[in-house]
């Protein structure tokens, strides 16, 4: 369970570029919630993710996971609870290392890494092979290939597997299909959905694509100027249409970007 209470974040305080990125944000994700987050550029979506992941420290407020206050934890300590997939497929994997080495790194997320234990054992190798086979991309036969030889979609699929190979308390997806071509994007998104539903992973997915935000997940939140301005779930969300969302957007000061309308 993720609980965010009264979080504020302002960048460049006291300068002409002062920018309030988050203003009194309150959000509680229940176990198994799959929440999609939409909002225009500068709405605070990324800052929200960054304060949760620890890449940014909030000015005030509190962030808890499973009742543990992680507000002051550095990024690497929060990894114990959080699995992440970034927008850039290059960022989620170590390109000069093998596929199975990447998975082995992820398998130890948030744990001590021993200098006296080999990173890869036969047991692990078999387990990784089975997990890769589930992706249906034929990567189980290329365990000893360097990740840099793979396509963006394949890399993103591996990053997704890495983020979930040890079930995280929270999975954060930061526009993780935005850099992929439409066909690959939908493949990765379906894969995402399958994994999340299978393991009932609590998920926060930022997207620029309104249709994806509506089609996936059980709850949708819309952000604008650092605030959550819309929060729907259950049946109400199921009935939501792109037109409804556009109407909501037009009520805000920021007009939606082209990408959102086209998506």
């Amino acid at each position: 369970m993720l609980k965010i209470t009264n979080v504020y974040k302002t960048f460049n305080v006291g300068t002409i570029n002062e920018k309030r990125a988050l203003e009194d944000v309150n959000l509680t994700l229940n176990d198994g919630d799959f929440v999609t987050v939409i909002g225009g550029n500068g709405a605070g979506k990324s800052t929200l993710q960054n304060v949760i992941s620890g890449a940014t420290t909030p000015d005030s407020g509190k962030i808890e996971i499973n009742g543990i206050d992680i507000t002051k934890f550095p990024e690497h300590k929060r990894a114990k609870y959080i699995g992440r997939v970034f927008q850039d497929p290059m960022l989620g994997t170590a390109s000069d290392m093998w596929i199975e080495e990447n998975l082995a790194l992820a398998y130890k997320r948030g744990e001590n890494r021993s200098p006296f234990r080999w990173m890869i054992s036969n047991d692990k190798e078999n387990q990784f092979k089975m997990s890769l086979a589930k992706l249906g991309l034929g990567l189980e036969d290329r365990m000893k290939s360097k990740v840099k030889l793979l396509s963006g979609g394949q890399r993103q699929a591996i990053t997704l597997l890495m983020a979930t190979i040890k079930k995280p308390d929270l999975l954060m997806l930061d526009e993780h299909t935005a850099a992929l071509d439409p066909k690959t994007a939908s493949l990765v998104l379906n894969l995402t959905n399958e994994i999340i539903e299978l393991d009932k992973i609590t998920t926060l997915m930022i997207t620029h694509n309104m249709r994806d935000a509506i089609n996936y997940g059980n709850r949708l939140i819309m952000m604008d100027q650092g605030k959550i301005i819309y929060d729907v779930s259950g049946d109400e969300k199921k009935k939501l249409t792109v037109e409804d969302l556009l109407k909501k957007f037009n009520q805000t000061k920021d007009a939606p970007s082209d990408a959102m309308i086209l998506g």
């Binding site: 114990k80 170590a94 080495e101 890494r113």
Partner: peptide, 24 residues
């Protein structure tokens, strides 16, 4: 070749990633 050693290699290869996986 150890778990710890792999995190050294990963730090040189993709720092952001290995930090997101819990390595200081």
């Amino acid at each position: 070749g150890t778990e710890f050693g792999a995190s050294i290699r990963a730090t040189g290869n993709n720092e952001k990633m290995i930090r997101a996986l819990g390595v200081n």
